[in-house]
Design a protein around this nucleic acid. Sequence first.
DNA 1: GGGAGAGACGTTTTT
DNA 2: CGTCTCTCCC
Length: 645
Amino acid sequence: MEWDKNLDKESAAYRFAADNSKIIRVVAGPGTGKSFGLNRRVARLLEQGQNPKKILAVTFTRTAAQDLQNEIQSIGISGADKVVAKTLHSFCFGLLNKKEIIQNTGRFPRPMLEFEQKPMLNDIDSTFGDIKNKETRLKAFEAAWARLQSEIPGFPADASDRQFENEIKSWLITHKAMLFGEMIIETFHYLRDNPLCVERQEFDHVLVDEYQDLNKAEQSVIDLLSDNGSLTIIGDDDQSIYSFKYANPEGIREFPNTHPGCNVIDFDHCRRCPKQVVAMASRLISHNTNRTLGDLQPFDTNQDGVVRIIQWKSLDAEIDGITRKVSSDIKDGSIRPEDVLILTPVRKIGYRVRDSLVKAGVNAKSYFREWAISTNELKYNFSLLSLLANKKDMVSLRYLLGFGNQTYRSASYKHLISYAKDNHMDTLDVLDSCVSGVLKVPRISSLINQYRIITEKLKELRFAAETDINQFIDILAPDIQENEDFRNILIEAINLSKKEGTDTQTWLQDAYKHCVEKVSFPDNTSEHDHVRIMSLHASKGLSAKYVIVMSAIDELIPRIDRDSEISIEKQIEEQRRLFYVAITRCKSSKENYPGTLIISSFVGLPGNEALGIGIKASAYSRRSVSASRFIREFEETAPATIAVK
DNA sequence: GGGAGAGACGTTTTT
DNA sequence: CGTCTCTCCC
């Protein structure tokens, strides 16, 4: 296919695809066809003979990276599959994994899972307060990295903060591991301090999608990767909803100023949403300050759409009413289950609607982020698998040695570590020698006991791995309800890795890798035949013909944290963007379907239920609430709210 | 090192 | 109201 086939030369997509500037910023509103434009641009580069291996396309989320990869491959030009399309973290992980870089930095890119951080925090000096305090400090550090504060000269680093950071880093170095946020910062330092390294000359074209989701550190890595070629960034500050991870929407707003010679292209014609939804969304977001894009415009060919704003007298009534509405619309054939997308501000409400729909005979599934490893036993077993696959994995060993104790036996563990250090021994060698009786180290007997148990279990597992795979699965994930998710992941991992002729160690390593992947980053299936229920955040990047935004009450959207260091105005603006993202998921379709958006609220709920979803209330009395202030901000673009009794 | 009882807190989200 | 964490005591 020609890259400019059927492209109107006046369209933003054409101008973007054809643009030869070295630096380009695209700001594209929801549903304005930026992926399409990006695709055509890559197609043009390839058709003009650019080397696909020298094109890097990155995004922040894994879903977006997957989409990007699929789309680029579907271009159908030979070599398209060689374009590097990844998340930024996965790119950095790969870069750091190269042997010479590990030697250079002294670090190991073995990411720390959340449950593995607990023992670490217990091992850190108690002068830093209790676990909660330490967790806060740890977050503050990742935040400082994210904001690249340490790069600003004269940043007044508090002495105790500095010491905390040193202790964390030294723990991570001893245990050969890394925090997620460090992956970016280590890459940044490597690239910045080695201006002549191959990685900085590797790409002729760097394209970044969803740029508004990147934080300062991530944006700086992009600058370093692209300093030898062209840089194209695409995003929309109005859809920046990741302030909790310090995403920096100023980055895209200020981009032309920070990148002289930048050409600017705006996509503001929405093809996706029905006209009325475009009008509402546009009015809603106009209440934000400091925006880049003007009004969002509908295409003339878009349908008008159907918008209903409704209110119930209670949360129960809302769940019940939406269940009846959705199930009757599905039953009489006016909508298919896969076209329905229900968005809730909190997961508890999501689960309740899902259960209620399923009970009514509707095929429905919720998509909240779940952690397949829910119980302590599973965490233990997961760490066993990790150690079985890689017997020198210090993080897993640390977790297993501390298991079952509130402080993770940190006092004993410190003795063990310092003994190993003082005698220039490997921690594992110290433990092995103690077990075999060759060595006696004071005050670590509880650890030796744990280590005995661990080695026994590992032996048992290895034997099962070689002789009886079902036994192996049963040990790691006994067939009970709580283990179901992990058990399935494990079985899948084994099926994928254990083939005729692969030796045990190899498939164990592959299976473990697969488990980490699936456990940390659950699938999001694009193909489905059911009603989807998810959080407002999770809906980003999706669209559906029948969108219901539930429980749009003022306590939940906007949700305001009065103790936050972020000003209330800023919080409201971000929540407004979240609401904006949610309603613009609604699409009209060519097959004459107008597209339906339902926004629903209620006026009261029992106090204990309110408490359970983070609304202040007294447990025993009824809590009254009111419709989200954002509904009022639609002004005359939206229909009046309908009361449902 | 483990268990009982008091006390705090309750959300969304990414790699 | 439930769940999780922390403290205290044996």
